[in-house]
Design a binder for these strands. Structure first.
Lengths: 307, 307
DNA sequence: AAAAATACTTGACTAAGTCAACTAATTAAC
DNA sequence: GTTAATTAGTTGACTTAGTCAAGTATTTTT
């Protein structure tokens, strides 16, 4: 088990301890309402799932059947729920909230909302949004529903240019040690791209995960027959899961559709993974020369592919 | 309470329910070790905080004093901890783990790690990383450790150019309806700034909150006597808390130090709040003309200030 | 038709957590 | 420098939360 993974475990366990406290706080204030945490959870589930049965609740809330049975009996006694025996299966009883139950739940809801407002109220909206986004992500990933939220889009939106430049600047600095001159270079070339953008010749694709840009590639036409592939990158956290291949496929398919004869690209020897992908797509190295811009020595390479 | 905020509450409460389940699972498996969740938390805290006292634990873990007292007694009986009375204050007893205590904690640790591995083991590493990052963010924000972490820095780091351009592109689109041509324009002017950057004449400041860029301003020298103020913006969520004033003050102070005689800036009539700040700083409008770039009609204005 | 399984309930129990009254040491007030 | 108030920690008596296994009624499998 490497240190990085150990660090990961540390972070998650730290978070678990932290969130145990947070939930404890929320729970504490729940106590001001005659509801135990378990009771509140049960009430919530019944209120939010039409025709749920006791069995379903025990599974969903990981609760002992006997315990739940008593909670339900209590709710029935207080007039919060009623049961109706299933006609198809007489062992089952569908649970529903009465009007009193709905009122109790609404009260609980607003209390809970107030509690959460207390928790996040002092934060700037910006950060509240970020928290919500992080929570959504964690929930999505841990519940295994994450599937593939990664999408590829063509449309250029305000802010994209900056994000693309930022990704290039920060990633190449981190991974290859390039300085800000490289980012300025991207800035300039991308400006030229935007300025001369011609939908008949040029195209750009962004890979996104939940609205966050995680990769890109573009095609720039040079005349009728030659196209250049530019700004290809994948965020390191998302490498090795086929996004790069998808982007390249899109780009090359576009080139074929546009009847380009040749696609070329410029890269440096630092870009090991990218180069492997270029090679896999059929690109061949045709030129190589030393360069010292961007803060350190590297080999500038040109690859090309005849379609 | 607007719908957006309500959605936020929904998300957070959903997450709380979700994470209650997650923690419940972790807890369940803790049961295979003779430790209750509370006991495990206590053991962990003692192991990770030199010389903690019972009082501190009750506060940190929000635990009843009497309950804790009994848990501690149990630990002492089992030989997991020992206490030493404080010399400075005889009411206090410092708690420490014995060797057996440390062993028990280590066992618990490895069990907990295994549990978490079960939770995240099936996810691709990049998603694990993202989860960790999200957790760190939530913890930081909710624990209020992000407080007013707003700082102003001068140093230009890789990624800054892109972020600045992104902020301009997305904010002006959102607030003024400018299209991507405006972002391209920023791209170009900022490239020129970087290309010609001369520390003796030029300077840029970034306002950050927890590493996130939330505002910026720059001074570009035009000869010995005239300076231009550019790329002034504050993220809308951070307006009205003096960051803009701080940035302007920094910029104008720099101009004075450099013995510039005049500072000018160009803006549009859309920039109501910024213009108010310029006026407050002593800038006067000296020119105005209509312009139609960036997708809609607006007035381009020039302001200047003699130092 | 008998046996196995399922949905839910009940009784008897243990563990978890709370509350208030209690020392013993320390600090503040007069 | 004594008295009163506070604080750290303990203890007894209690309530609540949660578990386990045996129970009933119904359905499914063989």
């Amino acid at each position: 088990m490497d240190t990085e993974h150990l660090h990961l475990l540390q972070v998650i366990r730290g978070f678990n301890r932290f969130y145990t406290n947070i939930l404890g706080l929320v729970d504490l204030h729940l106590l001001g309402t005659d509801f135990s945490l378990s009771e509140a959870r049960v009430l919530f589930e019944i209120g939010n799932h039409k025709n749920c049965t006791a069995k379903e609740l025990t599974e969903k809330l990981k609760m002992d059947g006997g315990y739940l049975s008593r909670i339900l009996k209590g709710f029935e006694r207080k007039g919060f729920i009623y049961r109706s025996q299933s006609e198809a299966d007489g062992r089952k009883y569908f649970l529903s909230l009465t009007r009193e139950g709905r009122e109790a739940l609404a009260k609980l809801d607003s209390l809970s909302n107030r509690q959460i407002n207390k928790m996040i109220g002092d934060l700037p909206p910006f950060k509240q949004q970020i928290i919500a986004k992080c929570m959504t992500t964690i929930e999505k990933y841990l519940s295994g529903e994450s599937g593939s939220t990664i999408t590829i889009r063509q449309e250029l939106r305000p802010g994209d240019a900056g994000t693309l430049i930022h990704l290039h600047g920060s990633l190449y600095a981190r991974e290859c040690g390039y300085n800000y001159v490289f980012e300025a270079y991207v800035c300039n070339t991308f400006f030229e791209f935007l300025k001369n953008y011609d939908p008949g010749k040029d195209r750009i694709w962004f890979a996104e995960d939940g609205g966050q840009m995680i990769g890109a590639v573009a095609i720039v036409g040079h005349g009728e027959e030659i196209a250049q592939l530019r700004w290809f990158l994948i965020h390191p956290d998302y490498r090795g899961c086929g996004i790069g291949r998808r982007l390249l496929r899109e780009a090359l398919q576009f080139c074929k559709n546009q009847k380009y004869q040749k696609v070329f690209l410029e890269t440096t020897d630092d870009q090991k993974t990218a180069i492997q992908m270029y090679r896999n797509a059929g690109f061949k190295k045709v030129e190589e020369k030393e360069d010292c811009s961007w803060g350190l020595r590297h080999m500038e390479q040109t690859y090309e592919l005849y379609l």
